[in-house]
Amino acid sequence: MSALTKSAGSRKNRTFPEWLRSRDGQRVLVMIAFLVVPLVLLMVFTYIPFAEMVKYSFYNMKYVGNRKFVGFKNYIKVFSRDDCFGALKLSLYYMGGSVVQLSLALYLATILSFKVKGGNIFKGFMFFPFLINGIAIGFIFKFFYTRGFVFDTVLQWVGFNLDSLPYWLKDRSINNISLVGTSVWRYFGQNMVLFIGAIMSVDSELYEAAMLDGANKFQQFKYIIMPSIKTIFVLNVILSISGSLSAFEPPYVITDGANGTGTYFVVMHEIAHTQQKVGLASAMAVVLLMIIFIVTVLQKLFFKYVFKDGTE
């Protein structure tokens, strides 16, 4: 903007209306006209509410009624309460799940991007869960894991004895794994499709050349596919990691966060809506944002370092 006005001003000493009518002025006007709608939307629905939330985090307040300014007290509470930060430990389960999810997605994507019989049907089946509403998935899995229902029945067909099977949601040593399973089931298809898309964009001549040079499938994967889909891969990793920090739907719908499955988001929801401690919940949200921010930067640095060594 400033560069534009300067260049316009230096041409002639024009008045403001004259400048508006000139080519430069019209260009600026058009730019503003196009930008104003998305910017207003972005401001009104993202940044202003966010600023409000940051403001709330310094108050002791409910949704209705009086507010009291308490400074950093809410932030101190976030760090001193067991349930707020303890809930982040559960994210490790979800991060573990995202590793499984990404490797599975990458493996299947690689296979499916070569010529496979019925490839599209497989793609369709595996992508399908992503199209189902998260709440519906919650209800499906609630019954799936119920004692003696779907999962147990299937396992009994395979020869397991019902008495030797654990209670999938009751047993605290595995209930989080059960929940992570639902999230892997839902998202790996989507990751897979993204990977396939990226792999498709690889020039097929590269494979031919590699074959002529005597490279096998694994070498093709390592030296052609992997470097070509680096961007998408990093993006998927970042999305899954921040997704695991903010896991919400499976524990909220299936177990209501009870029995040691309350993730950070579920605890935040409980504090904001049941306990009505809006200030504290806002502070939790801000802290989580900071954590995601830091984790993302760390990942960026990590990948920059790793890929630099690995491929060049």
Partner: peptide, 8 residues
């Protein structure tokens, strides 16, 4: 009930 986490 046997499995209280899946009551409906």
């Amino acid at each position: 009930e046997d499995d209280y986490t899946t009551t409906d």
